[in-house]
Design a protein around this nucleic acid. Sequence first.
RNA 1: GGGCGUAUAGCUCAGCGGUAGAGCACUGCCUUCACACGGCAGGGGUCGCAGGUUCAAACCCUGCUGCGCCCACCA
Length: 918
Amino acid sequence: MSEDHQEGLPKAYEPAEVEARWYRRWEEAGCFRAEATSSKPPYCIILPPPNVTGSLHIGHALTATLEDILVRWHRMRGFNTLWQPGVDHAGIATQMVVEREVKRTEGKSRHDLGRDEFVRRIWDWKERYGARIQEKHEHLGASLDWSRSRFTMDPGSSAAVLEVFVRLHEEGLLYRANRLINWCPDCHTALSDLEVDHEERQGSIWEIRYPVKGQDRFLTVATTRPETMLGDTAVAVHPDDARYQDLIGKTVILPLLGREIPVIADATLVDPEFGTGVVKVTPAHDFNDYQTGLRHRLPMISILDEAARTNEAAGPYAGLDRFEARTKVLADLEARGLLVSEKPHTLSIGLCQRSGTIVEPRLSPQWFVKIEPLARPAIEAVEQGRTKILPETWTATYFHWMRNIQDWCVSRQLWWGHQIPAWYCEACTPRTPSGALDLEKATPIVARTRPERCPSCKGSALVQDPDVLDTWFSSGLWPFSTLGWPERTPELKTFYPTSVLETGHDILFFWVARMMMLGIHFMGDVPFRTVYLHAMVRDEKGEKMSKVKGNVVDPLDVIHGQKASELPPSLRNKFPEGMPAFGADALRYTLAALAAQGRDIKLSLDRVNGYKAFTNKLWNASRFLLLYLGDFRPGGRQLQQASLTLADRWILSRTERVTREANDALGRFEFAEAASALYQFTWHAFCDWYIELAKPALQGADSERGDTTRAVLIHVLDRVLRLLHPFIPFITEEIWHRLPGVPEDAFLMLSQYPEAGPEDPVAEAEMEPVIAVIDGIRNIRGESNLPPLQRIRAVVQTDDAALRAALERHRGYVEPLAGLSELTLQPTGAPPPSSGSWVGQGVSVYVPLAGLLDLDEERARLRKEIARVEADLAALRRKLDNPSFVARAPADVVEKDRARVAELEARRAKLLDNLSRI
RNA sequence: GGGCGUAUAGCUCAGCGGUAGAGCACUGCCUUCACACGGCAGGGGUCGCAGGUUCAAACCCUGCUGCGCCCACCA
């Protein structure tokens, strides 16, 4: 063939240039755009909005890959498909990043800049870096409709947040209260329960004596946080505890401060078996004690300020860091002989998800969403199957959390976020001793816009609540706020409820549950029909990826390659010369192939490399076919049954089968199964067998035969490209455009996804034994280490006349593929040549190998084969000798085993016969 | 303290009631005119351990062990 035909098709697939080119062309041609209204059925996935500060890690790559597969698959199947992109403002995370940045570059704190200026800096920062996430998704091939990209703090989303806040307040589902909440002393803000991570740490437990007033006795309490005693307002015992009956209702003297506090009886707080059976009660600094305080109407004394330093309530201990206060309290107790003991103790402590600081329970005025009335319909929706959660095992987790849900603290003492639409009247709000507005005692006015004047005193001096909303408040509205709500847009009508919500299981509560609750409440219907929760991606050892461990794999490094010096340590060991560029398609295929349900993914770069080889295989197979296709255009008649050979019918049948398998698997979200079926078919059925079988016809003189073969090849290749496109969009689009007759302005990504037609079991059944005989000859050849170019003679014996006829008809397949100079067909019983032999089902193959065969090795091989057959036979006979098996197993199973015994016996006899001839 | 997941070939993983599979790695032959990121052939597993159910168990049940995760206020 001339070099001309190969021009533009390099020998090895080079992803870099192809990927960049196609993404641009798709984008420019508007291939990703959804229509607001359409006669086509809608399909919509909302991309979980990445953090504006975030880099794109491998978890995002998994999300993008799986969603892009679903989206491209549906787009090709004729759905009006919207994949909605967006970015999350990520309140606390972003504020911290920019705060650090300002500190580093200008040496200033956010307080130095002031709120307005600091927030302006964050917006600048967002303008500068917010587009990075989009670019990174482009490298992955994600077909998101960027023309609709949204931000959680853009005007539309902010309008939705405002509307939801005001309406929840009007409905009595949102209220302000002074409650004990989780507080981060480092971020100076309240946190929801979900934003606190728990960690087991080694600490101590101390026993402290509290003197009973007017008696020469003590009550000994146990505590892991002795400094909180400064805020104690009671000591509790169990009501039935005989040891302390007489002390209930008496008074003890709080050591160090000398305050008098009551001894109360409480069966909920106190376990008489634990420790001394006496518990100190600090309602302002412990969640259990807080509940106890409410039950007994105890005073609540806050001893820590927003930085967790002791305040004036701590008396002589005021002005200390909480841990300094602990040391000093312990030393003073020791000095007064009130410290009984210190013992090592394992305790679970709460850490701020963002800063890692130990969280402090703190009493403060916050906004809460009353959650139970929202949770109930969200539970029912899943119970009734209106939303399906996959893998199903997560349903139980969802129910458990939803049924035990607590009111949601939605206010944050941050500057970056949606400022709460509530105002306070300067005239009617009480003042603190320092003269500031006492917001704890204030009555908020919730309104869509700043009120003109105070409804009570008619005064016009109103200040807005300084707090902002939890980031998850706005993302909880995402499925409808991105579609235009509260406006009644055509998009909302077309795409809500969305089709699938695909995300990691780590944000089931943070995000999915809240979208369910808010979506049902405000839209009157579930936000998505199916929730598909994918696994977490870990490194090759199964460890969570983290910067600290140095095992973070950057998807862009995998796609484009990276110098060794830029790689994290674990990868530097693996790739001392630097990491090669695997390409986006290879990464996507790996992620899809590993995305089996209900299992975490360990990213194996060896597998990425394997799928890179797959893209290269597809590339070269196509290159070869294009060489022989030239400008050939299939006419209708070539694919008619009458012109087809057995091999043609066989590959066409297999093509229908894999089409069915791919569609079925994707319908069940079985990405791995679809990927595996397509891989096996493309490489091992199409490339290894059919293309090899087709070569003689392509190179032969029979032009009609050649044309039919070309028509089949082009048909199957076109199918393969369409089937694989959702998984590996770049290379398939590139190859497809080189097929003869594909218009310049067409796109594979907008073409039709194949639907399976009828299979041809007759052709498959006839082809199988032919393949088996070729395998048999190759086996003898391989075992004898014969070079492929050395032509050999083969004798095939079988009593199956139909098979002999088939082999006679198809010697054109057998001879070239097995490298034969001559194929002889005989009935069994004709004296076989002394030779290498292979025994199949009803067939024996002999290859005369005078002088080429190591007889000892051949004998050893046959003996091993016989041993294997005999082992199988023994197991089967044991089974069939068992009367209850024969009696109870289904007849077809027994029949199958009997047939197998017969076949194995025949094979054994044949093998022994062959052994005797050597 | 509850709950969930997982344990299959050296590695990464499918299979989840009727003869143990894939990819990579490994061994041998082959630089044959699509592809050495290749072709052909081959070796390798008592399916974590112990019981049970069943004619039959990698697959279902129970217990144990290892690994991982989630939830929970035990001072």
